[in-house]
Computed example of a mutant assay.
Amino acid sequence: MLLRIFAAIGAAGSVLHTLIAGQTGNALETTGILLLRFLEYFFGAHIAYVLVMLLSTELFIRKSKPQEKPSKFWLWHLHAVADLLCFYARADVSITGTELIPKDTRYLMVANHRSLADPVVMVHKMPKEELTFVSKPGNLKIPIIGKVMHKCGCLPLDRENNREALKTVKAATEYIDKDYASVVIYPEGTRSKQEDMLPFHAGSFKIAQRANVPVVCVALRNTDRVIHNFPLKKTNVYIDIVGVIDAEYVKEHKTKETAALAQGMIEEKLDAEKKKESAAAKC
């Protein structure tokens, strides 16, 4: 949002300069020139920003250097890029239930996984929450994106390698214990290509159990439609924070039970919204 405001201010300045310089003709020509100048500067500023970011990642980020904690500098830029992606992808994102997010403690946030856009919309709509993500190891190998994820403290989770998975759980727990960030994970383990959710992996909840923190449950809707609708159609995306499982419950119950409870809360919300959509379609 802030980046778009700066670009708009700069574009307005360019328009003002055009007026002062007297580069005007009749009313139609004037309108066309001013609009062109505004768009030229607005989009040019965004392109310049992205190019500078791409160059910076190549020059200054070394993934071989361990990242002890998420970089606030790169987290700020992650939010800026998420804002731009949602803006240009025409994703109109709404969020409910933010009042449920714990204010006095870190937490583990879990959500259903529908699309690559899931973390983007979550970062976009929760700018005040210091979040870092647990992701597939392959995502951190993506050129440029992987480097930014590394600096933002994103952690690779190899579910096929128990030893490496345990390292990730320990690292995520440390982020929470040291108050560096709250952690987001998608317990399905991969994107669900069907309407129904995949079973939650109970191991994902070991992070909350070890750190003795609550679990924030999030239902995501329509993120899978963003790419299909782009660029001709706007997509209404919904983030619903459906509930919080308190730390005491997480501590006293098996991770399998916590996983079942979290998935049930999310599925209940998704099913309710699906019924509303079906009823509305019949009207």
Score class of each variant (00 low, 15 high):
residue 2 L to A: 15
residue 3 L to V: 05
residue 5 I to Q: 12
residue 6 F to P: 04
residue 7 A to Q: 08
residue 7 A to T: 03
residue 9 I to G: 10
residue 10 G to R: 02
residue 11 A to P: 06
residue 12 A to G: 15
residue 14 S to E: 10
residue 15 V to E: 09
residue 16 L to S: 10
residue 19 L to F: 13
residue 21 A to V: 08
residue 21 A to Y: 10
residue 22 G to C: 10
residue 23 Q to A: 13
residue 24 T to P: 03
residue 24 T to F: 09
residue 25 G to S: 05
residue 26 N to F: 09
residue 28 L to S: 11
residue 30 T to R: 00
residue 31 T to A: 14
residue 32 G to Q: 01
residue 37 R to W: 03
residue 38 F to V: 13
residue 39 L to Q: 06
residue 40 E to R: 13
residue 40 E to T: 09
residue 41 Y to F: 05
residue 41 Y to C: 05
residue 43 F to P: 08
residue 47 I to E: 09
residue 48 A to V: 13
residue 50 V to W: 03
residue 50 V to P: 04
residue 50 V to D: 05
residue 52 V to G: 11
residue 53 M to Q: 09
residue 54 L to Y: 11
residue 54 L to K: 14
residue 55 L to G: 13
residue 56 S to N: 15
residue 57 T to K: 00
residue 57 T to G: 05
residue 57 T to W: 06
residue 59 L to Q: 00
residue 59 L to C: 00
residue 59 L to W: 00
residue 61 I to D: 01
residue 64 S to Q: 06
residue 65 K to P: 14
residue 65 K to W: 10
residue 66 P to S: 08
residue 67 Q to I: 15
residue 69 K to P: 12
residue 71 S to T: 07
residue 72 K to H: 10
residue 73 F to G: 02
residue 75 L to S: 12
residue 75 L to V: 12
residue 76 W to E: 06
residue 78 L to S: 13
residue 79 H to S: 09
residue 80 A to I: 01
residue 81 V to L: 13
residue 82 A to M: 12
residue 83 D to F: 01
residue 83 D to P: 10
residue 84 L to V: 04
residue 85 L to A: 12
residue 86 C to I: 03
residue 87 F to H: 10
residue 87 F to Q: 04
residue 88 Y to A: 13
residue 89 A to Q: 06
residue 90 R to S: 08
residue 90 R to H: 13
residue 91 A to Y: 00
residue 91 A to L: 02
residue 92 D to W: 14
residue 92 D to Y: 15
residue 96 T to M: 10
residue 99 E to R: 01
residue 101 I to S: 12
residue 101 I to F: 14
residue 101 I to T: 07
residue 105 T to W: 07
residue 107 Y to S: 03
residue 107 Y to F: 14
residue 110 V to A: 04
residue 111 A to M: 06
residue 114 R to Y: 07
residue 115 S to K: 02
residue 115 S to W: 11
residue 115 S to D: 01
residue 116 L to V: 12
residue 117 A to G: 04
residue 117 A to P: 02
residue 123 V to T: 04
residue 123 V to A: 01
residue 123 V to W: 00
residue 123 V to L: 05
residue 126 M to L: 14
residue 126 M to V: 07
residue 128 K to I: 04
residue 133 F to P: 00
residue 137 P to E: 00
residue 138 G to P: 13
residue 138 G to E: 03
residue 139 N to T: 14
residue 140 L to Y: 03
residue 140 L to S: 04
